[in-house]
Design a protein around this nucleic acid. Sequence first.
DNA 1: TGACAAATAGCACGACCGTTCGTATTCTGA
DNA 2: TCAGAATACGAACGGTCGTGCTATTTGTCA
Lengths: 198, 198
Amino acid sequence: MGKGEDTRSLILEAALAQASEAGFESLTIGTLATRTGLSKSGLFAHFGSREELQIAALDAAAELFVDTVFAPALKAERGLPRVRSIFAHWMQWTRDSGLAHGCPLHAAAIEFDDKPGPIREHLVAHFNRLQHNLERALTQAVEAGQLRGDLDISQIAFEALGIVFAYYHAARLLQRPDATTRAQAAFDRLLAAASPAA
Amino acid sequence: MGKGEDTRSLILEAALAQASEAGFESLTIGTLATRTGLSKSGLFAHFGSREELQIAALDAAAELFVDTVFAPALKAERGLPRVRSIFAHWMQWTRDSGLAHGCPLHAAAIEFDDKPGPIREHLVAHFNRLQHNLERALTQAVEAGQLRGDLDISQIAFEALGIVFAYYHAARLLQRPDATTRAQAAFDRLLAAASPAA
DNA sequence: TGACAAATAGCACGACCGTTCGTATTCTGA
DNA sequence: TCAGAATACGAACGGTCGTGCTATTTGTCA
């Protein structure tokens, strides 16, 4: 009950767009107030502090990520198809979720990797969950006999993350048109080396 | 001639440390003035604008990167040894160069990937140079017969960059002790798949 | 419909931002 | 040594920052 909840999620929506464009440091009360049409103090009252606002936005981003990347991948069948589906959704998740500019989680990862505090802790938890979800999908592919049994799952997840980071870098900063192709090739090679046939 | 040059490089040294700790957005006149013991206006006079200061710091970081990563690798012999040397220096270049905290270039890459302007252009140029230097070393390994002749050099460079990004992420944000091992394993696998024997 | 709570606005605060300008200090070369 | 240039400082500016406080509006339920 209450329309406070409504405006709160409107604020968070604007916050995600802002974080996507210019990072979490740019998540300022004044900017967000202008963006939502609220007054500074009116917006402020919803969170109590800037840090709480940043945490709320971070958690919202993580939730949106799960909904956009992992949830749809559940429709693909268990094992390799689901792994490939996760990767495909992952690369274009900001587009799919309306965050036209970069991945807020990636931005936060660099901005807060050296700043202890609750934001950093939330961020680490989100990335650990991402890693865990990814490893589970990979494990299922192993169980289905689609990937080698002696595989180091954690290593595959590590390298997959790297491919996505390189993709973001090439696509966004360098604006390279071959970014998608390169990332896909890297991922295919990663899975090929992990398949039992070889 | 002149002591202006001296203080200027002292300022840039402090700026690199600051950017390593908290990113380029944290490169503020006031902070840097305190850090160097100069007055705000005194420091300001050396650059004329904050943006010029940021550009100078960015260029200094890129120069330091080349001196710390590529220059020492020239001592290793041409081909695979040099490629491996580059990678080894790359992973620990911030330690080697006294920037105890993250890589400023990596931070800048995320902070400015969506902000057009001279800073972004400088950054793109630096990363293109990095890519070029890396590809040259790889090409030499191909010419020496240490890597396959039909190799897509650019693809290898793309994936190597991804491995380094994943390493930064695991080592800094997640503080995972296996970060170095994972990155080295990924790089070894990358080179193994590119070697002619297979 | 009226009372009460929830939500929002208005205003002020101290701090820091980049920048300008006039002045003082320090260095340098003849 | 002494003039002139190079360098650094201090104070002030208009802005924006996060955050309190007090009103005022808005929504909700008996």
